[in-house]
Nucleic acid binder design. Structure first.
Length: 466
RNA sequence: UCCUCGAUAGCUCAGUCGGUAGAGCAGGUGACUGUUAAUCACCGGGUCGUAGGUUCAAGUCCUACUCGAGGAGCCA
């Protein structure tokens, strides 16, 4: 007997009249006095469920089938037929139902056939993948991940796996998670009473990565087109709907390229992903559109048709000033864009994603390339409606004297960046790259309102359950 | 970390002026039915987040704490 997924069956991949076996978890059971029960089965292969018709002549009908409740697992074997009822095209007339696992206390099984709040489901992280919402998000997440690798492969990129354990804060900002095997109750001390990191596992202080960028630049200046895609850790005490302590980041880096090439890449990249999820996850997106946020499909389709809006930082400040809107912080050249400014730009003034380019030097990282005007750097942020900053990137400073001067200006010691400076000494070329928070992308695609619902097991300050 | 709001049945919520708790869904039982978030009837289900305080009396007022949500900062 052929084993089939619910997706295969619903897609018409199995001829009616044939014997099939379907395995999954019960969503609901309805009993009819006609001597049959209807069991709605889901196996996570798609948004839909399959109706299994169980006659009371099954040997385990009284003892097991009637005890199936939401969440129970079962294997159904029978004939695939045109449904005799309304509401679905196909159903399985069961010859046998094997109950794998009943729900031992149906009253307290948290996932019920009704709408649950996302906050409640967050506390049920091990069971929430059984809901339509988290099934959809999980499948879209997978498709988006594959699409990212597809895109880079097609464009000739090489995926570079930068280290998770690192020795310094790549960007000179952000709180790091310490990695240590020292006994925290009995730390070794040196002569001056300071912690003796030489005795730690790596012989020095180590942390979880906050970015693979610096490491991947070395591979960029050898393989020309590279990207990282892996987990990233930030210990910032950020309690918002768009921050995680552990998230997945994509960081492409391209050689012989400037900021414009970088923005072009970001646009092609996002469009490729959106095209893939629209093509391969239409039913899941439709669910998101119906239940999470109206219009997510139209938003993605519009994204594919229109080009990114590009605006110079200085012009953006001017537009904000002329907009006549009241801001808590008045827009002013030299200050970073506040969340309220970013929202105004992409949601009100442009109504679509915006690339803001060429920020003041003082508010950006040391590795970003100085522009000719002497006061801005070749940095860019891609702002998306509803989320704000989704991509941050820049052209990198490839001129060693300029890089050294910039580091000193920012209080950094060039000698601490020996290998990074080497890249500018040995065959330096203009290069650029950006970082994309994968979960932020999912929030945008699915129309989620909290990033903690975009990752299976969210890690945030004070929260690492499951 | 700061600001605001919240915590009542397994879930979603109501609870008036302070007078010792309600509904829907879910669960159980029964009726009915090729059903489909079925429908109808009945039943069980609560230390009102925790600890104090005010009061004859606290779900309700006050204080602290815990947890959650939204916003801000930081960022992807």
């Amino acid at each position: 007997m052929q084993v089939a997924s619910v997706k295969q069956v619903l897609a018409g991949g199995i001829p009616t009249g044939s014997k099939v076996e379907v395995r999954g978890w019960v969503r609901t059971r309805r009993d009819s006095k006609a001597g049959i029960s209807f069991v709605q089965l889901s196996d996570g292969s798609c948004q839909g469920t399959l109706q299994v018709v169980a006659p009371n002549t099954l040997p385990n009908y009284q003892t097991e089938v009637l005890r199936l409740t939401a969440g129970a697992s079962a294997i159904a074997r029978g004939t695939l037929v045109q449904s005799q009822g309304k509401g679905q095209a196909l159903e399985i007339q069961a010859d046998a139902i094997v109950v794998c696992g009943l729900v031992d206390d149906p009253e307290t099984y948290p996932i019920q056939p009704k709408e649950h709040s996302l906050e409640f489901l967050r506390e049920q992280a091990h069971l929430r993948p059984r809901t339509n919402t988290f099934g959809a998000v999980a499948r879209i997440r997978h498709t988006a991940m594959c699409a990212i690798h597809d895109f880079f492969t097609q464009e000739g990129f090489v995926w570079v796996n930068t280290p998770i354990v690192t020795t310094s804060d790549a960007e000179g900002a952000g709180q790091l998670f310490r990695v240590s095997t020292l006994d925290v109750h009995n730390l070794p001390r040196d002569d001056r009473g300071k912690i003796d990191w030489k005795q730690d596992f790596f012989g020095r202080e180590t942390f979880l990565t906050v970015s693979g960028q610096l490491n991947v630049e070395a591979y960029c200046l050898a393989l020309s087109k590279v990207y990282t895609f892996g987990p990233t850790f930030r210990a910032e005490n950020s309690n918002t709907t768009r921050h995680l302590a552990e998230f997945w980041m994509i960081e492409p880096e391209i050689a012989f390229a400037d900021l414009k090439d970088n923005a072009d890449l970001a646009e092609r990249f996002l469009k490729h992903i959106f095209r893939a999820v629209l093509r391969e996850r239409r039913d899941d997106l439709q669910f998101c559109d119906d239940r999470l946020q109206k219009g997510v499909i139209a938003r993605l389709e519009k994204f594919l048709d229109a080009s990114f809006e590009r605006v110079d930082y200085g012009d953006a400040i001017g537009m904000l000033q002329k907009s006549g809107r009241k801001f808590d912080y008045a827009p002013q050249w030299g200050m970073d864009l506040q969340t309220e400014h970013e929202r105004c730009l992409c949601e009100d003034l442009f109504g679509r994603p915006v690339v803001v380019m060429n920020y003041p030097e003082a508010i950006k990282a040391f590795y970003m390339r100085s522009n000719e005007d002497g006061r801005t750097v070749a940095a860019m942020d891609v702002l998306a409606p509803g989320i704000g900053e989704i991509i941050g990137g820049s052209q990198r400073e490839e001129r060693l004297p300029v890089l050294d001067a910039r580091m000193k200006k920012m209080g950094l010691v060039p000698e601490h960046y020996g290998w990074y400076r080497d890249l500018r000494r040995y065959g330096s070329v203009p290069h650029a790259g950006f970082g994309l928070g994968f979960e932020r992308l999912l929030v945008y695609i699915c129309g989620l309102s909290n990033i903690r619902d975009a990752i299976p097991y969210p890690r945030a300050p004070g929260s690492a359950a499951f």
